[in-house]
Structures are given as C-alpha cells and as structure tokens.
Design a protein around this nucleic acid. Sequence first.
DNA 1: GATGAATGAGGGTTCATTCAT
DNA 2: TATGAATGAACCCTCATTCAT
Lengths: 220, 220, 220, 220
Amino acid sequence: MNRPPQQRSAKRAAPPRARGRSRGVQAAARRQAILAAALDEFSRRGFAAARLDDVAHRADVAKGTIYLYFKDKEALFQELVLSELAPVVGALEAALTSDLPLRTIIDRASELFVREIYGTHRKQILRLVISEGPRFPALAEFYYRKVLARIFKAVRARLRVALARGEISDDALIRFPQLIGAGFIVAVVWHGLFERFEPLDVAALVRAYFDRLFAVARPP
Amino acid sequence: MNRPPQQRSAKRAAPPRARGRSRGVQAAARRQAILAAALDEFSRRGFAAARLDDVAHRADVAKGTIYLYFKDKEALFQELVLSELAPVVGALEAALTSDLPLRTIIDRASELFVREIYGTHRKQILRLVISEGPRFPALAEFYYRKVLARIFKAVRARLRVALARGEISDDALIRFPQLIGAGFIVAVVWHGLFERFEPLDVAALVRAYFDRLFAVARPP
Amino acid sequence: MNRPPQQRSAKRAAPPRARGRSRGVQAAARRQAILAAALDEFSRRGFAAARLDDVAHRADVAKGTIYLYFKDKEALFQELVLSELAPVVGALEAALTSDLPLRTIIDRASELFVREIYGTHRKQILRLVISEGPRFPALAEFYYRKVLARIFKAVRARLRVALARGEISDDALIRFPQLIGAGFIVAVVWHGLFERFEPLDVAALVRAYFDRLFAVARPP
Amino acid sequence: MNRPPQQRSAKRAAPPRARGRSRGVQAAARRQAILAAALDEFSRRGFAAARLDDVAHRADVAKGTIYLYFKDKEALFQELVLSELAPVVGALEAALTSDLPLRTIIDRASELFVREIYGTHRKQILRLVISEGPRFPALAEFYYRKVLARIFKAVRARLRVALARGEISDDALIRFPQLIGAGFIVAVVWHGLFERFEPLDVAALVRAYFDRLFAVARPP
DNA sequence: GATGAATGAGGGTTCATTCAT
DNA sequence: TATGAATGAACCCTCATTCAT
C-alpha cells in the first residue's frame, strides 16, 4: 500500500563508471543503451504511448539522463530511426547499382534484406517508419531523399539497361520501383499483425516474389 | 455543490434538428459523424495521440456525447475499423472467388481496391490497421479470421485451378497469397509517407503489378 | 461492442398511467419511488458518489423525471432525510414525554427504535445523517432544532422528576441527554461497519444498555 | 507534440529546501504534509467529494507529487486512516488490559481518548472511519481485526475478573463491549453535527458516561 | 407530465520535462 | 555527468443538469 519514492537501487550505487572505459566510450555506450531501449519501447507501444520512464528503466539509466543525450522524445525517436537506417542504405545502394547480372543483384539484395533487416531489430525500425512516419515529416523526407530517391535512381538506370538487354520484359519496375520493396513491406507488415496466427517464411516469400517479378514473360 | 446552469452555446442555439429526421435517424447520423471525425483524427495523429476532444469538435458534438455511442476510446477505434472493413470484405471475397478468367478477376479486384478503398477514406482505415494493429490484437485477429483467412482460402482454390489450366506458371501465389495484396499495401504506405514528395498513380501501379505478377513466364 | 442509445424499453412504452390511479396519486407514488431509490443509492455509495442515473433506474423513471419532483441532487437528499425523520419524531417525542414510569418509557422508546428505525430502512437514514450531516448544515440544523432540542427538553423535564422521585440516582443524563441515544448510534454504526464480521443483537444491546444506564446505584 | 517548458511558479522559486534536511527526511516531511492535507480535505468534504487538487494545494505540492507517494486517491485515504490509527491502538490496548483497578483503567482510557483522539486531528479520523468505512471494506476489516477484536478480547477478560470481584454488577459489558466506546462515538458524532448549536464538554460527558456505566447497581 | 439524448465542467491520473543535488 | 523527485499541462471519462420532443 505504501510507495515511498524508491531508493536508489543497489546497482546504481556502484561506482558510476567501470575502470578502463574512457569517458567517451562510456557515453557512447549509454547512448546506445538508450537507443536500444527506445527501439524496444517504441516498437512495443508506438511512439505516442511509449513512456520515457520505461525507456530509462530498460536502458538502466535515470530518466533525466535521456535528456543529456537527446533533446526530447521526438528527437530520440528520429535519431533512433536515422542511426539504424544509415548503415544499411550504403550497402543496399551498392548492391542495387552493381553491374552484376540482374538476377544476382536481386538475390543479393534479398539476402541483404533478410539477413540485415528482417532478421534483426531493424525490422522494427522499418515498422516504425511505416507506422509513425506520417507524423514525422522530417523523417519521411530524410528517408525519401537520402534513401529512396537515390536507390530509385540507381535502380532505374540499371533496369533500363536490363530492359535493353532483355533481362526484363517490360518497364513496369522502371515506372514503379516501389514494387521492388513490396515483398519486404508485406513481410514486415505481416509479421507485426499476423505472425501469431500464421507464421511466414520470409526468405521463401521474398524469393518467390522476385521470381515472379523478374520472370520474363512470354506472349500469352 | 451547486453548479450554475450552463449556457447553451451559440452553435447549439441553432435549430437542433431538421424536420423529418426521426430520433433513430438522428442517432445514426450522429454515430456516423463521430466515426467520420474519429477516422480523421486517428489518421492524423494515430490512436494514442488523437484527442477525443478534437473528435467531438469535428463531429460537432459534445465530448460526453461520444460516450453515448461508444464505451471508450478503444471501442470507438475498433468499431471504426470494423464498420468500415465489413462492407468491403463481402465484395472482395465475391470478386476473388468467381469463376471468371483469372485476369478478369484480378482486374475487377484491382478496380474494386482503387475505387472502394484507395479512392475513399477507407485507405486511412487500411493505414490504421497497418499502424495500430499490433496494439489491438482483437482487431488483428478479426482482420485475419474474417478477412484474410477467408480470402486466402478462396484465392488458393481459384489459383489451383488456374495452375492446372496454365493460367499461371507456378505456385508462388498459392504459397504466398499475401503477395496479391502487396501492391495495395505499398500504395497505402507510399501514400502515407511520400505522396508529398512523389505522387503515385496507384491505378497504374496496381495494373503494372498484376501484369508482372500474373505474367506467364517463358523459360529464360 | 456496439452501444446505440438505448431504445425506450417495452415497459415504458406501455400507457404511462394505470387506470384508476388519479394524477395526484400517481405523482405521489412516483415521488415515493424516487425517494426509496435514492435512499438505497445514497446508502450504498454515499451522497457524493451516488448517481442519479442509478436512482432513476431503480425508481423506474427517466433521469429527467427526478427533476420534476426535486430541485437537484442536494434537495433530493435533504427531502429524503426529512421525509423519513418526520414521522418518527412525533412518536419518539410522545413516548419520551409521557408520565409513565421511567422504566416503561425507556422500554417503549427502545422498542420504538428497534421496531421503527433499526428494523426498517430508517436505519439507513440515521446512518446518512451521521455520515453526511456535516456537509448539510441545513439538515443538521433541522435535526437539531426540530428533533433533538425538543426531545432533550422533554427528556430533561421528565428526568428531573425522576431524580426527585429517586428513579435515577444522579444527574448524568440530565446534563448529557445525548447518552440516551448512544446505544442507538452504536448499533447503527456497528451495523454499517462490522455486521459482516460480528452480527449484533441490537434489541439485546439496547436493553442491556438501558439497564446499565438507568440502574440505581448503591453507594460503593 | 511539443510542449513549451513550464514556468516555475513564484512559490516554488523560494529556496526549495532547508539546509540540513536530507533527502529522506524531506520525503518523509512531504508525505506527512500530504497526509495532513488529505485529512483536512477528506474531513471537510468526504472522500468522494474531496479533490486531490485541493489536497495538493494545501500540502503545497503539485498534483502529480501525490502520486509519487500514493498509488491513488483510495490508497491515500486508506493509508491516512491506517497511519493514524496504528499508534493509538497499542496504547489503548495496553491501557485496557492492565491489572489496575477497573475504575483506574477506565479513567485512563477516557483520558487517553480525550487527550489523544478527541483533542487532536484523530477525531477526524474516527469520523472518517464511521462515515466512509462502509465503502472501504479493507479499512473496516483492518479496524475490526487489528483494533476492535483485540481490544474486545482484552476487555472481556478483564471484565470477567471484575465481575468475579464484584467491581461490576452484571455481564452487560461482557456481552456488549461495544458500549464502552459508545460515549466516544456519541462525542465524535455530536461534534461533527451539532457542535455549532450546542458545544459539548466531552471530558465531562465521558466521565459521566462511565460513572453510569460502571455504577454498581443496587436492587431497585 | 415524462423522457432520455445531449451537454460540458470537473476531477483523477499520466507522463514529458526540469533542475537541485 | 547522472540522478530521480517534482512539476503541471493534458486528457480520458463521469455525471448532474437541461430541454426538445
């Protein structure tokens, strides 16, 4: 029945920094811990319903500490998404623009997606972008300009070559490169909503999807 | 303990009801107004951040009135989604199960989607399901059991016939009927996030998508 | 999940007044029904927490109807208490002022209390006065002036005679006539709080109490 | 989504803490301030009508602070009553179980009541138990098991001895130990309701009451 | 008179943010 | 730098009261 303001936990009473870890390393670790905790909480509850109290607990820092690393809840969210997105963008772009055979490119991109995104916590990031993006114009804009626009440009260039070479039979994907990501999107959405009812073999889905998408049609 | 009689607001001082509207009709209209307002606000802010105060304002009713029609915010949300989904389910199921040529079926389903969902406020409903579904298990379950499971069943049956007849060249879509909706999902997600930067011709995208998806492959 | 404003119940759809009951009789019956329902609800929840909605339901009238008979919640409460108190006051006063032997008077008053108050819903009224009285000065004042002051005056007069006659051995009750009611008060308070744990034989308690109170002391 | 930083109120601009008050002491003081303020407000308005806003104001803390110390309004109420009751229980039990002459015991208990309860804010606690107890079963149960049951047991044991010794002349109080508290209850109830109209010398009332209660009767 | 849908002020509770330590 | 108690605006929900029918 009683709830006195909680005593500083035993753990926190320990000396605040492990020996051998420089200040900067420690700070970076804390930042990471907060970001990781934020990802968990934002994924679990959504941006608006997530509580910074829970983030702090999960990151094992005090609530105020979050504000030493991030301006506010919104900044925390945006930096979270951006920091997770950045590393994949380069890889994806590289994969998609190479001059390997189209089929190889696609296979590599698929594998990259399954391994680096769907198989990791980055899947949650993608979900967050899809779910919360509309309320974070800065995020959507970044994502569009820095990720999609560049990828689309590279993809279209490569596809035009492919069309000329007969690797693909029409310009559908040139006009709508969005479709290339459709398999990924569907996988992430399915996972968030229906995994409970019917698990999904994402690698197989993605493979089947690209098989269909890049099949060379014969006249009916 | 006493509360002075509240002044009737200027707005409410207007004639409160058009002649010829029975009480039941009036109630139904109000319910609809609240649902419409709720859709707007939930779409704009997301479930957690939406304020019932704003819903009430937008519906031109008092805050308390919402509670005459819905138990609480969550019930309002769930009924909103369900009431919008229900009418389309039947139509979609009927379209997908017919014995018309596969291509016709697909064209009709596409048209149905573009006209009845993407072209209307139901697009927002789909977005809400995608975004908020994970926090509303009852909703996800309803959607899975009453919509997807039934549609998938019908679709798989039809596709098996199509495969036998050579209308399709492999079993990708039988194994992953999720892919049939991928074009729709991508369209909705794109609209929510990037429409501002690059508008999307959804009808064309869906057409192109199905062209690719149901293309009969020839050996490479 | 759906909660449309409830349809007028079948019962209420019946002709609003039974044949043979004049308008005035009907009105009085309604008033009584409301008062009875109010007593139940106020007793159950206390004045502040009781809901007029529940009162209306219990009285089988519409919420607005209450306001045809009572100005507001507070007036309902006060009239409730007053209307229940009034009939007993006269009887109690009569019983206490008679010129019968003191012991007979006391026995009759006890019996009156047990039969007319403790054995009926008036017990709840007494509880309400005790519990809510401090927030209803008008009520406390009425109760003091119209009930207690008069009873005390009568009692004191009778006790002075009793003291002179040797029916009682000291002036304790003349100075503190409050004590005469102590047994009643204790019974009501006990009932409200602890009846669950340990039921109380109130008639026996009151008898034992007065035996002690009016025992003629012998010098120690 | 942004919230402007709230201005620190003028009041809070004062030096927030006296030197030499450790954090724990400060917290305890705050808790006490809230409990004291709650007692005032609950007494004044009753549990249901009391506003935590007023409690906070009176305790000179922000509304949210209350929730750092108490789970909710109900917990605040229950802890208030319990924290005030606990200290007196022991003393009362000790007083009533001693082997001093019965008259001495009674005198001491009376004095204890007048000094420690009626003369202090605990009088309000007793009122709250009487008024609100029925709506707080946990409270009534605590009060019965931890206070009354124990006291009654001690009292009955002592009274049986007294009866054997001829200190009392019958078993009325053994059967109804409730009556021992009757004087206290009447005093508290009177105070709450009628003090305004007719002040009560409680010490004298209690003395007179016990004189009568423990008078050794002679046959009439 | 009687109804009950509608109203909207009010209050309990939450939680992002601050700041003294 | 890190803490976490404190703050108070905000928001969901309730319910006394009104009034068109």
